[in-house]
Computed example of a mutant assay.
Amino acid sequence: MSTAPRAAERVCFQLQVDAARLDEYRERHAAVWPDMLRAIEASGRRNYSLFLREDGLLIGYYETHDDAASQAALEADPRTAAWEAEMAPFFVALDGRPDQGAPRLPEVFHLEDQLAALDADADAER
């Protein structure tokens, strides 16, 4: 019985940064605390990016094999609490910790998945 590696879960989320604090938010993320970087890495998240629009719309993206486990790891990791407490005031209308309270956006298209399905169909027709 083979155990194929579990596919990565792609996670996208949205938050609203206070437009009056955009420059400070960018500055803080230009050099995230090393302990926070290591905590994110240890949680199993990778390929993590944040995108910030001029009106404060923040879109985040990362990949993980188990988002629930990744969130639980970050919530339990003492390195994350101080960072998230410092970041919380930057967000508009957020209940709780930024990492936990961000609404997730459902994925509706992924190029590689559709190409793989297309290739599998072509192989099946041969």
Score class of each variant (00 low, 15 high):
2 S>Q: 14
2 S>A: 14
4 A>S: 09
5 P>E: 09
6 R>Y: 10
6 R>N: 11
7 A>I: 03
8 A>S: 13
9 E>A: 06
10 R>N: 12
10 R>W: 08
11 V>F: 11
12 C>E: 02
12 C>S: 10
14 Q>L: 11
16 Q>H: 06
17 V>E: 00
17 V>Y: 01
17 V>F: 05
17 V>C: 06
17 V>M: 03
20 A>M: 03
20 A>E: 03
21 R>D: 01
21 R>M: 01
22 L>I: 07
22 L>K: 01
22 L>G: 06
22 L>Q: 00
24 E>D: 08
24 E>W: 02
25 Y>M: 10
25 Y>E: 08
28 R>A: 04
28 R>S: 01
28 R>I: 00
31 A>D: 13
32 V>G: 13
34 P>T: 08
35 D>N: 14
35 D>V: 09
36 M>D: 00
36 M>L: 14
36 M>F: 11
36 M>N: 08
38 R>L: 08
41 E>I: 04
42 A>E: 00
42 A>Y: 04
43 S>A: 00
43 S>F: 02
44 G>L: 11
44 G>T: 05
45 R>M: 12
48 Y>C: 04
48 Y>E: 03
48 Y>H: 11
49 S>P: 03
49 S>N: 11
51 F>G: 09
51 F>C: 14
51 F>Q: 12
51 F>T: 11
51 F>L: 15
52 L>M: 12
54 E>C: 09
54 E>H: 14
55 D>E: 05
55 D>L: 05
55 D>Q: 04
56 G>D: 07
56 G>L: 07
57 L>M: 11
57 L>D: 09
57 L>K: 09
59 I>K: 06
59 I>M: 05
59 I>Q: 03
62 Y>V: 00
62 Y>F: 07
65 H>Y: 09
65 H>R: 15
68 A>E: 09
68 A>F: 10
68 A>Y: 11
68 A>M: 09
68 A>D: 07
69 A>S: 15
70 S>Y: 01
70 S>Q: 09
73 A>K: 15
75 E>V: 05
77 D>W: 03
77 D>K: 04
78 P>M: 08
78 P>W: 00
79 R>A: 11
81 A>G: 11
82 A>L: 14
82 A>H: 13
83 W>N: 12
83 W>H: 13
83 W>F: 12
84 E>I: 00
84 E>F: 05
84 E>H: 13
85 A>K: 04
87 M>V: 00
88 A>H: 15
88 A>G: 12
89 P>G: 05
89 P>M: 08
89 P>R: 13
90 F>K: 10
92 V>D: 07
92 V>T: 15
92 V>F: 08
93 A>W: 07
95 D>G: 10
95 D>C: 12
97 R>V: 05
97 R>W: 09
98 P>M: 12
99 D>C: 14
100 Q>I: 08
100 Q>M: 14
105 L>C: 06
105 L>P: 01
108 V>L: 14
109 F>N: 02
110 H>A: 14
110 H>K: 15
111 L>D: 10
113 D>F: 07
114 Q>W: 11
115 L>D: 06
116 A>H: 06
117 A>Q: 08
117 A>C: 04
118 L>K: 10
